[in-house]
Design a protein around this nucleic acid. Structure first.
Length: 270
DNA sequence: AAATTCTCCTGAAGGC
DNA sequence: TGCCTTCAGGAGAATT
C-alpha cells in the first residue's frame, strides 16, 4: 500500500517521462475513484505541457500552465509508464496519453483520486491543512512535542495524522515506534521531548531507507516499471504478529488502534 | 478542538 | 472445488 516512500519512488520513476511531455489525450475509465474524476479533463488538458511533477505528502502533483493535476494512489494504486500502443486492462482507472508514452493509473480498490485545481495547489482543500514533510527542518522534536501537549490520542494515531506530520502510514508508524521503543498506545501528550527527538530521527531514517530500496511492496505496490520494492525484507514488526521480536525474541503482539492493526513488542516498547 | 466512527472498494484469506 | 464471510486499509466526512 503506497505510503510516502512508495509515492516518492513513483514520483522519481515517472519524472523523466512526464516532465515537458505534451498531453495528447486523457481517458477516465472509471467515473469515480474516491471522488468523481473530472469529466472535462480531456478538453482541459489536451495540448498542454506538463511542466513538473512534485510530491506533497502522499499526493503527486503534476503542474501545468493552467493548473495542477492532483493524483493520490489510495491504498492499492500504482502509476505506470506504458508503451504508446498498449491497451488498458481491468483495473486501469485513468490514463493520459503523452508524447512520451502512456501514464496509467491502476487502482483495484478505487481508494485513489484524480483531481484538477486551478487555484494555487497549496491552497487546495486537501493540501492546505497538511502538516510538515517528515524531512523538513521544522518537523523536529520541538514541533512534535508542542503539537502533542494536551492530547490523549495514542502516539500511533498522532504520527499517522497527516495534519500533524505527513507520510507516516501504518507500516512505517509501526516500524518507527518499534525502533524508538515507544508503545504504540502511549498517549501522545505524555511523551517527553527527548523521546520525540528519538522518534523523529527513526521516522526519517526508516523512510529514507525505504525510499532507497524502492518502497515496501505488500500486495499491490509496483513502481513505474511494474517492479516491486524491497523494503518489506527489512520490516521488524509490521505483519509479524505472533513471530519473535528481532531484538528480544518475545512474541510480537497485535493491537487494534484507531481501526488499524498495530504490531509491537511489549517488552521493547514502553 | 479533539476524538471516534463511518465510509468508500475489492482482492485475499479463512471456514465449511 | 467452490461459495460465503471477514478483513485490510488512506484518509476525508460525519458525528459526538
Amino acid at each position: 500500500m503506497p505510503e510516502l516512500p512508495e509515492v516518492e519512488t513513483t514520483k522519481r520513476g515517472i519524472e523523466r517521462h512526464v516532465t515537458d511531455a505534451h498531453i495528447l489525450g486523457v481517458i477516465a475509465h472509471s467515473p469515480k475513484l474516491r471522488w468523481p474524476i473530472p469529466q472535462n479533463l480531456n478538453e482541459l488538458l489536451v495540448g498542454e505541457r506538463i511542466q513538473s511533477v512534485r510530491r506533497r505528502a502522499k499526493y503527486l502533483l503534476l503542474h501545468l500552465p493552467k493548473g495542477c493535476l492532483i493524483i493520490h494512489l489510495g491504498m492499492s494504486g500504482s502509476l505506470r509508464i506504458a508503451p504508446a500502443n498498449s491497451a488498458a486492462k481491468a483495473h486501469d482507472r485513468f490514463e493520459m496519453i503523452l508524447s512520451s508514452g502512456i501514464l496509467r493509473l491502476r487502482d483495484p480498490r478505487k481508494f485513489g483520486a484524480v483531481l484538477w485545481t486551478e487555484e494555487p495547489v497549496e491552497e487546495h482543500r486537501l493540501i492546505a491543512p497538511l502538516g510538515p514533510e517528515p524531512f523538513a527542518a521544522e518537523c523536529n522534536a520541538d514541533y512534535l512535542f508542542e503539537r502533542s501537549r494536551g492530547r490523549s490520542c495514542s502516539i500511533k494515531t498522532f504520527i499517522m495524522n497527516a495534519h500533524i506530520i505527513v507520510g507516516v502510514g501504518n507500516i512505517y508508524a509501526a516500524e518507527s515506534l518499534f525502533a524508538a521503543g515507544i508503545h504504540p498506545q502511549r498517549a501522545a501528550g505524555r511523551i517527553s521531548k527527548k523521546r520525540y527527538a528519538d522518534l523523529v530521527e527513526h521516522i526519517q531514517r526508516i523512510l529514507k531507507k525505504a525510499i532507497a530500496q524502492g518502497g515496501t511492496s505488500l500486495r499491490d505496490f509496483v513502481n513505474e516499471e511494474g517492479k516491486p520494492g524491497y523494503f518489506s525484507q527489512e520490516l521488524q514488526v509490521y505483519g509479524r504478529a505472533g513471530e519473535a521480536c528481532t531484538n528480544c525474541q518475545s512474541t510480537l503482539l497485535n493491537l487494534t488502534i484507531g481501526q488499524r492493526s498495530s504490531v509491537y513488542c511489549a517488552k521493547c516498547q514502553r
